[in-house]
């Protein structure tokens, strides 16, 4: 019972680590934190899943999770990266989506059954002025997980967290 409570607390601690590239959202909100398990006294195993296979932020995330758990009195932390089941943008929480939009990044739409590009042209809303009149500038933007768009109403370019 005591272990479970501690495990829950450590899950909250690890989950509240901000994403190194999008510091407005946490690992829990992005759905990147898969599991936090006590494997013994002072011993914790953490499972993270990368957004993209080549995501360079995963190493910084592992180090950050390790550090905060050390700060919360856990001397032995093992962070493992798991690929299966593959991460999807559907794993981003409602709160995470709200924060992304507030930060100026249009949140992802629901994915299709196979993942990847969404074939139907569902409108993507400009995070600055709210217009749905936006066009794609490039499928790849500042990071692999984002596409670059422009709002035709306010003319501002913005990032769109693309569906995966």
């Amino acid at each position: 019972m005591v272990t479970t409570t501690l495990e829950d607390r450590l899950r909250d601690v690890a989950g509240s680590v901000p994403d190194p590239e999008l510091p407005v959202v946490t690992l829990a909100e992005l759905g990147i934190l898969r599991d936090v398990r006590m494997t013994g006294p002072g011993q914790v195993e953490v499972e993270l899943t990368p957004t993209y296979t080549g995501c360079p932020a995963i190493e910084a995330m592992s180090a950050d999770v390790e550090r905060v758990l050390h700060e919360h009195g856990i001397p032995q932390v093992e962070v493992r990266t798991v690929l299966s089941p593959p991460w999807t943008t559907d794993a981003i929480t409602a709160e995470g989506r709200r924060k992304l939009a507030e930060f100026g990044i249009a949140p992802p739409r629901p994915t299709g059954p196979a993942g990847g590009p969404v074939p139907v042209a569902l409108a993507i809303r400009c995070p600055h002025c709210g217009s749905t009149d936006t066009t794609l500038l490039s499928r790849f933007s500042s990071t692999a997980c984002k596409a670059l768009r422009r709002c035709e109403s306010c003319r501002e370019p913005f990032d769109h967290f693309k569906e995966l």
Partner: peptide, 8 residues
């Protein structure tokens, strides 16, 4: 995992 990236 990779099949979704390659779709892009």
């Amino acid at each position: 995992k990779a099949v979704k990236e390659v779709a892009y």
